[in-house]
Computed example of a mutant assay.
Amino acid sequence: MRDTNNTREGDRNGSSKHQPQEAHMSLKLIDSCLRLSVIPLSVATIWLTVTIHQSNPDYGNLDYNSIMGLKYMVGVSAICGIYALLSTISSWVTNLVSKAWLFFVPDQVLAYLMTASVAGATEIVYLLNKGDKTVTWSEVCSSYPHFCSKLTIALGLHVFVLFSFLFLSVISAYRAFSVFDPPCDSQTNGNA
């Protein structure tokens, strides 16, 4: 009877050892998939934004160089795509994976950069569609509908990259801080 209890206890301990490793592998797979998804989304955002141009006989040409916020969006997309490629490759190098801080800091910084970029691009798309009558900025999309529709698609792809980096920042924060023990309650230590 005693041996069966030890065997059951050993099975429980053995299965509990496999659960963290399985959880670690699934987290690594999710991390890699998110990083890999950023690459084509960033490339598509850059390509759509850079190739946007439309001419109007009454108002002239409009392209992404005309709007500074779109240049920022292209720059941030390029940084995110390059980082995603490099971090995907390096995430499978075992020496670097153990250094959780190498992924934590850039993931956080890029999540903030993406938030600023999406906010700026959203404001641009809003102003192009609605205008701002208080500063006499009229809407542009009635004169440049092709430009606005492609820009809206590029913004949608950019938002998906933002969500990917938000999830990546949570995953990298979990990896970086899960190695530490939770803080002890001082009342618990005093009573023990």
Results as ranks from 00 to 15, higher is better:
D3T: 10
N6I: 09
E9Y: 09
R12F: 12
S15F: 13
S15R: 13
S16F: 12
H18K: 13
D31E: 11
I39P: 05
P40Q: 03
S42C: 05
T45V: 06
I46V: 15
W47A: 15
T49W: 00
S55G: 11
S55D: 12
N61R: 13
N61C: 04
L62S: 02
L62V: 04
L62T: 01
Y64E: 07
I67V: 15
G69N: 12
G69K: 10
L70Y: 06
Y72L: 06
G75N: 15
S77A: 15
G81P: 03
A84D: 05
S90H: 04
S90M: 14
W92Y: 14
K99Q: 13
A100Q: 12
W101I: 14
W101D: 08
D107Y: 00
M114G: 06
S117D: 05
G120I: 00
E123K: 04
Y126T: 12
K130I: 09
G131L: 09
D132E: 12
K133Q: 09
K133P: 03
S138K: 10
S138W: 04
S138C: 03
V140H: 07
V140S: 09
C141M: 04
L151G: 03
A154V: 02
L155G: 01
L157T: 07
H158R: 03
H158F: 02
H158S: 12
V159E: 04
F160N: 01
S172T: 12
R175N: 12
P183A: 11
Q187L: 12
T188R: 13
N189G: 01
N189C: 10
G190W: 14
